[in-house]
């Protein structure tokens, strides 16, 4: 379970990027985090991961996100970055995938088995020994997700998972997200994807929660979306 209680954060004093937000995400729920540019979506992710320290209380599975607990908390959180190039730093997909399991104490044999299992699950066996910088955008995104799944996290965080993907790869990523049983927090501008993958939506606006509720309800509310510099998802827009 993820719990934010009265969390605030400012890069510069007096100019909060996140301003006293509170929400709870129960285990297994899939939540979309939406909002216009600069609304604070990525900052919420970074606060949850302990990459930024703000005010208020953040708990993951009851454990407060503080410096002393970061190693334990991060072991259960898988973060798919917006830019896969920034996420994948090893030469090949295999080496990138095995990086986290080895760090979390698995033997190389067990880590190998886990890598193979994830690659099979995603149908990416052919990418295993490919060099990261030779992958296409879609392959890179799938490989980045694979590196996270190899951690077997309880919570998956995704920052713009469908950005820069062609329609086919976007559909593959959406189907993959839907198939994952973990708790998911997905930040995106792609409201159609959020509609496809999330049961609940948190709408951020200027660092505050403007709405929190069922995805269908919020994403159909044209007034609410337009008031917060968003538009109806294409699939719900009248032709």
């Amino acid at each position: 379970m993820i719990d934010f209680q009265n969390v605030s954060f400012a890069y510069e004093k007096g100019d909060p990027v996140i301003d006293g937000i509170s929400f709870t995400i129960p285990s297994g729920e899939s939540v979309g985090l939406i909002g216009a540019n600069g609304a604070g979506k990525s900052t919420v992710m970074k606060l949850l991961l302990g990459l930024l320290q703000g005010e208020g209380t953040i708990r993951v599975g009851g454990t407060p996100v503080i410096k002393e607990n970061l190693a334990k908390i991060r072991a259960g959180l898988g973060f798919v970055m917006q830019n896969s190039d920034n996420q994948m730093f090893m030469p090949t997909v295999y080496e990138d995938m095995i990086f986290a399991p080895l760090n979390y104490g698995l033997s190389r044999e067990d880590a190998d088995l886990r890598v193979d299992r994830v690659l099979t699950q995603l149908g990416l066996e052919k990418l295993k020994y490919r060099h990261n910088h030779k992958l296409s955008g879609g392959e890179k995104r799938m490989a980045a997700i694979a590196t996270i799944l190899a951690m077997e996290p309880q919570v998956i965080l995704m920052d713009e998972p469908s950005s820069a993907l062609d329609p086919r790869n976007r559909r593959i990523v959406i189907n993959l997200i839907r198939s994952l049983g973990q708790t998911k927090l997905i930040a995106s501008h792609d409201l159609d994807m959020i509609l496809d993958t999330c049961s609940r939506v948190i709408l951020l606006s200027e660092g505050r929660i403007a709405a929190d509720g069922p995805a269908e309800e919020i994403l159909r509310n044209r007034e609410l979306l337009e008031a917060n510099r968003l538009e109806l998802p294409l699939s719900l827009s009248p032709r």
Partner: peptide
């Protein structure tokens, strides 16, 4: 970013 990615993976 890369360092963050490393930290987040243990």
């Amino acid at each position: 970013e890369l360092y963050s990615s490393m930290l987040l993976r243990g």
